[in-house]
């Protein structure tokens, strides 16, 4: 059986701005109808990759294929993709309806038809009665939805979202995460979503790529990335992770348990002893920083199991050997010694 043509294919993609290499050889395939996240710290090249898919930047090397067609040097207006910008980039001199209609108008969709489709799209993002307003009269969350409607009304093959939730407050962001996911399933369009928020990337995407210093460190499902990080960087950037076994393996804080007094570690467990530096009470669970060996371990335990452990107390720790995940290739050391 022939493999389906990927919606987006990046081949050895490179981009240099003068002497600065922003993207350094990225290969990636994104399937049709996939919700794909590009996760990484600022300056890791994820936004530049997005801009090359959109056509705003011309790659220094490599190729961009949309549905199998090479569009590496095609201008943005000749690509079947639309973008939701970080600052929304709504046209301030047009009404909300005119903003949403803009793409259809450019494509010469007749007046009645484009009015109908734009209104439908505004209804879909729950901004039914807002067509006559100016973008300046809307709240951040509403503007974000207008930007989404303006892009989606064109029924692109791929929708690119550049940190679309970054400017929203926490509650609104969580609402929009759920909503975006629902909209994506509704319209059945490939979504490529750039974010530096690992929680957002894990909770929303079907698959994600973790970027670092212009390269992809790992591509996989959220579960793969979280439970089987390929590099120390991924382990540190996605969730909190402890480097163990001389920096060759990682173990998640919730996989480490406190041994009760007199309790011995089981056969299949690794043992470590240390001194508590800091106890952070987080409600259902508590987080300990423990000085152990030549490093520090972050341990997450149910608050009920904490007992009388406090700063300066000696604790004994154990984790199952299989919970410590071996890093498949040496990457950069995670920032902040494993606490990300």
């Amino acid at each position: 059986m022939a493999r389906a043509v990927p919606a987006v294919q990046l081949v050895g993609l490179r981009k240099a701005f003068g002497d600065v290499v922003a993207v350094d050889g990225v290969d990636l395939e994104i399937a049709d109808r996939e919700f794909f996240a590009m996760l990484g710290p600022s300056g890791s090249g994820k936004t530049t990759v997005l801009r090359m898919i959109a056509g705003f930047e011309v790659p220094t090397g490599g190729a961009v294929l949309l549905a199998g067609t090479d569009v590496t040097t095609a201008p943005p207006y000749d690509r079947d993709v639309n973008t939701v910008f970080q600052d929304y980039a709504l046209f301030p001199h047009m009404s909300v309806l005119e903003n949403v209609e803009y793409g259809l108008k450019v494509k010469r969709v007749d007046r009645v038809e484009r009015r109908r489709r734009a209104s439908e799209m505004l209804d879909a993002v729950r901004l039914g009665g807002y067509g006559e307003r100016r973008p300046g009269q809307l709240s951040g969350g509403q503007r974000q939805r207008v930007a989404l409607a303006r892009a989606l009304v064109n029924r692109p093959r791929v929708l690119l979202l550049d940190e679309p939730l970054g400017a929203l407050d926490l509650k609104l962001r969580e609402e929009m995460q759920v909503e975006l996911k629902a909209i994506q399933q509704d319209v059945g369009i490939t979504f490529i979503f750039v974010t530096h928020d690992q929680g957002e990337a894990l909770s929303m995407s079907d698959r994600l790529a973790v970027f670092n210093a212009g390269r992809i460190e790992q591509v996989g499902t959220p579960r793969d990335i979280y439970e089987r990080p390929a590099t120390a960087f991924v382990a540190g950037f996605v969730g909190t992770s402890n480097l163990v076994d001389g920096g060759t393996a990682t173990v998640r804080p919730e996989r480490i348990r406190l041994l009760a007094a007199g309790e011995e570690p089981r056969e299949d467990e690794t043992f470590s002893a240390g001194t508590v530096r800091d106890v952070q009470y987080l409600g259902a669970e508590s987080r300990l920083r423990v000085a152990a060996g030549d490093g520090e371990l972050v341990v997450s335990v149910p608050s009920g199991a904490l007992g009388d452990v406090r700063d300066g107390a000696g604790v004994r720790l154990a984790w199952r050997r299989e919970a410590a995940f071996r890093l498949t290739h040496a990457g950069m050391k995670p920032e902040g010694g494993g606490d990300a």
């Binding site: 959109a54 056509g55 705003f56 201008p75 943005p76 207006y77 993709v81 639309n82 973008t83 910008f85 980039a89 709504l90 046209f91 803009y102 793409g103 450019v106 494509k107 303006r150 892009a151 064109n154």
Partner: peptide, 9 residues
């Protein structure tokens, strides 16, 4: 960018 993205030359 947005205008170009929406198809405007």
């Amino acid at each position: 960018d947005a205008a170009g993205d929406l198809g405007a030359r």
